[in-house]
Write a protein that binds this DNA or RNA. Sequence first.
DNA 1: GTGAAAGCGCTAACAT
DNA 2: ATGTTAGCGCTTTCAC
Lengths: 346, 346
Amino acid sequence: MNEGGLGPKPRGREASGAVRMSDVARLAQVSPITVSRCLQAPGRVAPETRDRIRAAMESLGYVPNLVAGTLASNRSRMVAALVPTLAQANHAATIDALTTRLNQAGLQVLLGSTGYSDIAELDLVRTFLGYRPQAMVLTGVTHSPEAARLLQGVGIPIVETLETGTTPLDMAVGFQNAAAGATVARHLMARGCRQPAVLTHGAASDTRAADRHRGFVAQVRACGGVEPLSVPVDPADLAGGAAGLERLLIQASGVDAVFCVSDTLALGALMACRRLGVAVPERLALIGFGDSEPGALVQPALSTVHVPKAEIGDMAAAMILARLSGQESASRVVDLGFRLVVRDSG
Amino acid sequence: MNEGGLGPKPRGREASGAVRMSDVARLAQVSPITVSRCLQAPGRVAPETRDRIRAAMESLGYVPNLVAGTLASNRSRMVAALVPTLAQANHAATIDALTTRLNQAGLQVLLGSTGYSDIAELDLVRTFLGYRPQAMVLTGVTHSPEAARLLQGVGIPIVETLETGTTPLDMAVGFQNAAAGATVARHLMARGCRQPAVLTHGAASDTRAADRHRGFVAQVRACGGVEPLSVPVDPADLAGGAAGLERLLIQASGVDAVFCVSDTLALGALMACRRLGVAVPERLALIGFGDSEPGALVQPALSTVHVPKAEIGDMAAAMILARLSGQESASRVVDLGFRLVVRDSG
DNA sequence: GTGAAAGCGCTAACAT
DNA sequence: ATGTTAGCGCTTTCAC
């Protein structure tokens, strides 16, 4: 259909008639390298030649093979990103901002979800590294030793998101989870709570949640409060939040405030309170984390901690882009902070 | 640090000391092809050799270059997926399910977001095709003619999600948006609404929303109702929903029911009603679409249409996997349906 | 069970 | 402004 019968295909492996750069070159009567240049730096080919090449590409429906290009140039246009799950608004918003920003700069995002599993993470890191990405974005700063070793060995920019508590592998952008927990504790104690408790995420690798929990407990202690009871929940969904709250009330009926390490958990707890006839915040104060949309809409409106999800994605992209363009960024750790949002629930 | 000084690197382009398959081969005293086999089909190399190779890989920290592998074998392990935005729970949930399922099968997802723009979509399609993915997942069935042409030309499985109204490029999984709109209309008319209206998404390329709108209007007509007024909103967020509702009430104070083409819009409208003192559903019935989490939690709880977001992602993955394993799937279009969820708001 | 040779489609490094 | 040559790191095909 397209061959002139001049040269039989040497290895004959191609599935469908994928158009190659050499086909374009032949039609445009130039050498392949000129076609390549026309794609990489159109300014370096004569306008007439350029038009001829473009016409040829158009008429053949040429789609450059980026895999071959990457191999030859040793430069991919890909950034790998790993999240625990997308089914949570924080992560989705962060990744959305990241991809949007990176796409604008001509970079593609290779996305993987670890499901809060360290071994899945290691697997994905290994595989993704195999694509020789230009950079890698991870969620959180806790990774298996092997993953950390692999990542440090490759010498590409690495950005860890949502957490800035400790020294990053390379760069980090987020906020301090422990400080957020402490802020919530201070707020609750100042409101006169006597017996605070916490609903936390049971998954061991959700160290962000664990940090918030830790910061909360430490601050309660510092304020001289009673040791907070804590109930781990896994999976950390609405039903889990509801069940967790019921368990909590059974274990310690005197609890008068609950810090839920995520809004989802808090919303589930709020539902349980409604069912049980527990008045919020009069009898029980409830504070969430993440400032999700539903939290602002329920009644009583959920008090929570706002975190800059989209800004984190934007900043991660910016840090990567800066590094790739040679700037040895001044700040390797960017703390975007958080903000306590006091509404009706506590 | 690692070279024995035997052969100078021919082209000397490598950034950092990336370990190559030949390095592993040399250390394990086999030829590169045996290392390759050890990775692809461990069963075909002798156990002893295998152990030697694995030890070598381990000690060198070898990470196979998948780019080279893809080029040589003409088979990538990647699936490309395009969504309008991830900042909306439906899409995030669908993609989450898709990636999880595909990752399990050893496939990676290359993710792009089009921001509801056809030209961004075309751009992404072109670029992604350059990576020679094994399959492609798109949102909706409406694409620019060039994109459609490109996609049909490549001969890989294509799955269009969230919409099954028309003939797909290749395969489709979702539900019928127009039918969903009609169902809402029937419900509202049966409840005795006299003057229904609709809050719709203004973005021209959100044809799913437009279909729901169309189906709704057609059904109202079929039921002999008055022609529904419609107010387009863009962007379709909470604030937009609130503003849209106010505009609607100004334009037609007699409206007694509003179908919002998304839950987000409906939630915004509900907030406006609270502010304005409009009783829902007594004075105004409100129905959303998508069955988002907040909708179930607000008061009055939002009536809406449930769609199987995660199931769509799962099914898309399953369809791709089936096709890749050679099964010429019986059904190219899978309608997973929807379900009217009547709660308090209408 | 293992290896040698060839080449995937493109681009870097020099020419000219 | 354009071309030549030589690979990128791997896998295919075919031989042993």
